[in-house]
């Protein structure tokens, strides 16, 4: 088990390197530089900013610097390697592993990306927590009810609703809900910015639920099909035969086993919630990381875009590891096979 966890954690390193490399490369070749503002900066300022943030260095590998050192008579491979790798990308990469995602271009270097993430992420996290809580609290009971009353009206209704939840993208359901609330009931779900900063703000309820609709639908379906499968197994029949009444059998024997597959969906769900939060935060005006990502597109703030992508990629990877570990703890059968 420990070995398995260690292997998965070490696997994070190449993942972060590749994610950083690819997004860095894509942003490096994107049009417009970091200091392109509406009012052009004087060239001297640009040069100073470039020097301050190491943007005057070579991009990937600095062969010229190695040549200079070799001409000076340096033969130490460590020194030569250091000169070769003293470039924008490798400096960035080494800073990423120290938790430094660099300055945001929009602030011209007065603020770092990790500071911005620290400020904005709690808002996205709260939204995500509301979404997951809603999905689990609604999805699991619905799934159990429809499985226990298979082919009843309730079952069909739940299945139809969950198909809707899976098929209709959250940004369509979010916008439609926004229309209904503001046009029909005159309630504006758009809140003032300061309302988002208290932990138990009602502002989170509606966007959180909309964000969680898709996950709710998946959990409902998965719970239903896995309860249906477990319901027919021998140990459940034995428990019933021994005279246990319906509810303890449902709760102790069926649910405990049926919920295992639901845990595996929480990894992909994390990725979905992150994707969804970008849209939901934009629609509902929540000042979280998702809407920051969108405004950074408009501002061409590439360092923020790269930083958030790396942050979210590691977050998804960690979520997947946690899911695997908890699955291993809860289901002894797979411990040996992995």
């Amino acid at each position: 088990m420990l070995q398995f966890v260690l292997r998965r954690v070490i696997w994070l390193i190449p993942v972060i390197i590749v994610v950083s490399g690819v997004t860095f490369a894509l942003m490096y070749r994107a049009p417009g530089g970091p200091w392109d503002l509406e009012k052009p900066l004087p060239p001297a300022t640009v040069a100073r900013l470039n020097e301050k943030f190491g943007l005057d260095k070579a991009t990937w590998l600095d062969r010229d610097a190695v040549q200079v050192k070799v001409d000076e008579g340096v033969r130490n491979p460590i020194v030569l390697g250091g000169a070769l790798l003293d470039t924008q990308f490798f400096n960035y990469l080494s800073r990423v592993f120290r938790g430094d995602l660099g300055p945001t271009y929009a602030s011209q270097g007065t603020e770092t990306v990790q500071q911005v993430i620290r400020n904005k992420f709690p808002i996205s996290l709260r939204l995500g927590l509301v979404a997951v809580t809603f999905a689990v609290l609604v999805g699991i009971p619905l799934g159990v009810i429809s499985a226990m009353r298979q082919n009843s009206f309730i079952d069909y209704a739940c299945m139809f609703l969950s198909t809707l939840g899976i098929a209709v993208p959250t940004f369509v359901s979010g916008l439609v809900l926004l229309i209904i609330l503001s046009q029909r009931f005159g309630i504006s779900p758009i809140r003032r910015p300061e309302e988002w900063h208290s932990f138990f703000s009602t502002a989170y309820i509606l966007p959180g639920i909309v964000l969680g609709l898709g996950t709710t639908a998946y959990i409902t379906r998965l719970t239903r099909s896995s309860v249906l499968e477990i319901k027919e197994q021998d140990f459940v029949r034995t428990a019933r035969a021994k005279g246990l009444s319906r509810s303890p059998v449902t709760l102790q024997h069926i649910l405990r086993n049926a919920l295992l597959p639901v845990i595996t969906i929480l990894g992909p769900a994390a990725a979905d919630l992150i994707t969804g939060s970008i849209i939901i935060e934009t629609i509902f005006g929540a000042p979280g990381l998702g809407s920051l990502f969108v405004t950074s597109i408009g501002k061409r703030d590439y360092s923020t875009l790269v930083g958030i992508t790396i942050f979210y990629a590691s977050l998804i990877a960690i979520a997947n590891i946690l899911v695997d570990i908890s699955y291993g703890i809860l289901d002894p059968r797979i411990r040996t096979t992995r």
Binding site: V18, V22, L26, T309
Partner: peptide, 22 residues
């Protein structure tokens, strides 16, 4: 595939669109 799968698909698509848009 594990490494590619680790990318948040929509974020990468956005970054691709910005990078190659012009």
């Amino acid at each position: 595939t594990d490494v590619v799968y680790a990318f948040p698909a929509l974020l990468l698509a956005i970054v691709m669109q910005i990078s190659f848009g012009d």
